[in-house]
Design a binder for these strands. Structure first.
Lengths: 121, 121
DNA sequence: TCCCGTTATTTCTGTGCGAACATAACGAAA
DNA sequence: TTTCGTTATGTTCGCACAGAAATAACGGGA
């Protein structure tokens, strides 16, 4: 458990097409996997359905195959889930996060030592 | 030499204060160190002086001490340079980049394999 | 047949951010 | 004193982007 106030390392993988996947889209994928719904995942993250849907559209366009498939209709049914590719991309991103946190710990701490801390009460 | 079109990994270190340092500010620091001028560094990066100056202001506010000191006046003289802290932060960021590239190579390649390539002629 | 929660899409609005422009202080050199 | 390139700061404008709201299609269940 690192101290809550410290700097946070964020990874972004930018493609030649000008798109990218970062913490936001990764979290969205995870919430879709957990809730089975684009709308519910968006609510969890405090974003509008339209924004969540747009991010999913971007993700699906970035990769050779869709990461999320959705189906309409049905009270209780109708929803979205990750494809195998989607689950794998999410998994790889989390692995990258974990590895980076370990490999770069020394430098992150060295920078953190010099960062001014936001006002302490 | 990785293939030119492949995804690029970008690191962003976000502080509790809502600020962050990423590829843009790191490059700006480097150009200031090389040119000795905020204005010249901004021109190199295709941004207005005001924007470059604003980024420098943000950087200086983020850390306990300024990363860039500037002096006015003088045709030929008058300019900016990195402080020891500034040089060290830049150095640490480049080390992070290098380490991340090595440590995450496997996952980056795995994701790259699934990324759709922008249209091929 | 009706209801409901979902996906999907359009339209409108505002607002935040950057670009562009303008201005001023500065200080060394000519 | 003038010139020149820099730092420093304010103002205005335009536009891309986000949010909100409305609408529609869908399909399972009651």
């Amino acid at each position: 458990m690192s101290q809550p106030g410290g700097p946070v390392l964020k990874l972004r993988l930018a493609t030649a097409g000008g798109e990218w996947i970062g913490p936001g889209k990764a979290d969205l994928l995870q919430h879709i996997a957990e809730t089975g719904s684009i709308a519910a995942a968006g609510r969890r993250m405090g974003m509008s359905y339209k924004r969540a849907w747009g991010l999913v559209e971007t993700l699906n366009a970035m990769f050779a195959g869709p990461l999320v498939v959705a189906s309409r209709g049905g009270a209780g049914r109708g929803g979205a889930e990750l494809t195998d590719d989607g689950a794998e991309i999410l998994r790889l991103y989390r692995v990258m996060q974990d590895k980076a946190e370990v490999a770069l710990e020394e430098e992150v701490l060295a920078i953190a030592r010099r960062v001014v801390e936001p006002k302490r009460k």
